[in-house]
């Protein structure tokens, strides 16, 4: 019996259907997600280390990865600032149309990326709605890395707002009152009392935004101009290699991107675990 207790897989329950539900879940998960991802791993392992390294560190690949990562980082930082501001305004202030605007924040989740891509290009092209006013200033947005940043800012906009909003709404206002009665200015209260407790949520949102932006394809390819070494993102390079039937190169770029994404997923989980220990709640 002592032996059996050591290998108990699940606790007994009167509810039926565990085997069927878990069995179906595992089969479906394996068939749709795990086995296909394994195919990618097998394929890149089949390349051999030296070939893989050559393909993954090819100058054009590195330029594309640098752009995807750099632009995603800038976009996430822009959204950290404005996402925090939006969450603050939407949670703390009351003004007409607030609920409508709050609902509207999720537009980038709902709008197909290709639609966002052509719309942003129509706005920021040199003869576009906004672009025509920027062009005389010497500012070119569409068909440059700046265009990539604009598209990535659009697609990753909701993440930080949505992770910060619930935490900000839960914050105990008495802490701020205490801070005010102890003589702190409003700015001191916000920066030393409120912001630190928002930090885990902000970091989680930042990581989610970054993860989404790094892999983004649809909204970027229209506005980027896609010039190799300049405004060509990593997912596009995968597509180009596939169209050349160069499966090895496509696989190598994909494997590098996947490794980066999974590290970020791990990072998000670590932030949340840290936040639960430090603040007693997940971000």
């Amino acid at each position: 019996m002592a032996h059996a207790a050591g290998v108990i897989f699940r606790q007994p329950s009167v509810i039926p259907g565990f085997g069927l539900a878990l069995g179906f879940t595992l089969i479906y998960l394996s068939a749709i997600v795990l086995i296909p991802l394994l195919a990618l791993v097998v394929k890149s392992a089949g390349l051999g280390w030296s070939d893989f390294w050559r393909l993954a560190t090819d100058a054009r690949t590195l330029a594309a990865l640098r752009l995807s990562f750099g632009a995603a980082l800038v976009a996430a930082m822009i959204n950290a600032v404005f996402g925090l501001l939006l969450a603050w305004v939407l949670v703390r202030y009351r003004f007409p149309g607030r609920r409508l605007i709050d609902a509207f924040i999720d537009l980038p989740f709902a709008l197909p990326t290709a639609v966002a891509g052509i719309a942003l290009t129509a706005l920021y092209a040199p003869n576009g709605w906004v672009g025509q006013f920027l062009a005389p200033l010497g500012l070119k947005v569409a068909y440059t890395p700046l265009g990539v940043i604009v598209a990535l800012t659009f697609v990753s906009l909701p993440f930080i707002v949505r992770t910060v909003e619930p935490v900000l709404a839960e914050i105990d206002r008495e802490l701020e009152e205490a801070s005010a009665t102890l003589g702190a200015t409003r700015l001191q209260t916000v920066s030393k009392v409120v912001l630190p407790s928002l930090l885990p949520a902000l970091m989680t949102g930042f990581a989610l935004a970054l993860a989404r932006a790094v892999g983004e394809y649809g909204s970027v390819i229209f506005i980027a101009g896609n010039i190799p070494y300049v405004s060509e993102i990593a997912p596009l390079l995968i597509v180009i290699r596939l169209e050349e039937f160069n499966y090895g190169a496509a696989t190598a770029v994909a494997a590098v991107m996947l490794a980066i994404s999974f590290s970020m997923l791990l990072l998000i989980n670590l932030i949340q675990a840290w936040s639960r220990r430090r603040f007693g709640h997940g971000a």
Partner: peptide, 15 residues
């Protein structure tokens, strides 16, 4: 959710 959409398509081509 953490896999680039392009890679989500690529894996089926590789399979």
């Amino acid at each position: 959710f953490s896999v680039s959409p392009v890679i989500s398509g690529l894996v089926y081509i590789l399979l």
